[in-house]
């Protein structure tokens, strides 16, 4: 188990290193921040001084080396625009995004599993087929369009829900959360659903496929032969088996949920990391972009690890194999 853990950690460091090169080169090639940051009326000398202060006069490899040295000390640079550490800027925005992503994931699971299991148990019924048709829509409609439609219907036309911002938040263990106030919840509903839609569709498909497969298995027939009620067979025997792929996929999806919150946050003006990164790209605020991407990569790595651990909790067969390995 320890060997396994160390091996995973070494992989993680390698991945981070390679990603940092890609990100650095990528960001370098999308434009010169000087053009945007510096007042066009400024004279040559002033521009040169600004470039020197930002460290943009050095060659790329040296900029990268400095970045690495600082990164090893936990410093990912200062925002050109706000002149505060990029990490700090991102961490300020992180709770909003995390809250949104986690709520969206819960929404996807809590709605998706019952709907998917129902569709799996009654694949030929009208309700089962409608659920599947809905999930196809959820997959194929673009997120931003669904977001705009939600705003049109619930904010503009019906006037039930607010369309922008986090609403009132409450401090919990030093973190501002919307979910703790009714106003915050109302602000949360549309963006969370918007972000959940893809996951919801995914969970429906996984739950349906898993259920259809499980109910044909001998262990379900044997459970019926024991005289169990169908509620217990579906709620325990089938449910436990379909949860394995769902947890795996959802866990892996959590990373992309956070990453792709960009679109939803932009549509609903949700003040999270996604909105920050879009603003930073517009202003070519390189340190923030680089730091954001590095944090996202790091998050993916951590999530993958946690999912693997969760997986072994859910599936006893994996647990044994690991204990031996």
């Amino acid at each position: 188990m320890l060997v396994y853990f160390i091996r995973r950690m070494m992989q993680a460091v390698l991945v981070l290193f390679i990603m940092s090169i890609l990100v650095f080169v990528g960001v370098f090639s999308i434009g010169n921040p000087v053009d945007i940051l510096i007042n066009p009326q400024a004279d040559q000398e002033e521009i040169a001084r600004a470039i020197r202060v930002l460290g943009l006069d050095k060659p790329l490899w040296e900029q990268y080396w400095l970045f690495l040295v600082n990164a090893a000390r936990g410093d990912l640079g200062r925002s050109f625009v706000f002149n505060i550490p990029a990490i700090e800027l991102i961490l300020q925005r992180m709770p909003a995004t995390m809250e949104l992503a986690i709520c969206a994931t819960f929404m996807g699971v809590l709605m998706g599993i019952p709907l998917g299991m129902w569709a799996g148990l009654k694949p030929d019924s009208v309700s089962g087929k409608s659920i599947m048709a809905g999930s196809i829509l959820g997959f194929s409609l673009p997120t931003f369009w669904v977001g705009l439609m939600l705003i049109m219907i619930f904010a503009v036309y019906l006037g039930w829900l607010p369309s922008t911002g986090r609403g009132q938040t409450r401090n919990f263990l030093g973190i501002e959360l919307s979910i703790l106030t009714w106003d915050g919840i109302k602000h949360m509903m549309m963006p969370a659903f918007n972000l959940a839609l893809f996951k919801l569709s995914l969970v429906i498909r996984l739950a349906r496929a898993g259920t259809r497969e499980a109910i044909l298995q001998d262990y379900v027939k044997f459970a019926r032969a024991k005289g169990l009620r169908s509620g217990r067979i579906i709620g325990v025997h089938v449910f436990k088996n379909i949860m394995i792929p769902i947890v795996t996929v959802l866990g892996l999806e959590l990373g992309s949920t956070i990453a792709f919150a960009v679109v939803t946050e932009t549509v609903f003006a949700w003040p999270g990391m996604g909105k920050l990164i879009i603003d930073s790209i517009n202003l070519l605020d390189r340190p923030v972009i680089v730091a954001y991407l590095m944090i996202i990569v790091f998050m993916f790595i951590v999530i993958n690890l946690v999912v693997d651990l969760m997986y072994s909790v859910l599936d006893p067969r994996v647990r044994i194999a690991e204990a031996r390995g």
Binding site: Q217, D218, Y219, F222, H237, D315, P316, R317
Partner: peptide
């Protein structure tokens, strides 16, 4: 009832 394949009759995750 007892089934033919003992590898399949017990639920693997319980």
């Amino acid at each position: 009832m007892i089934f033919q394949d003992p590898m399949m009759t017990l639920n693997p995750v319980l």
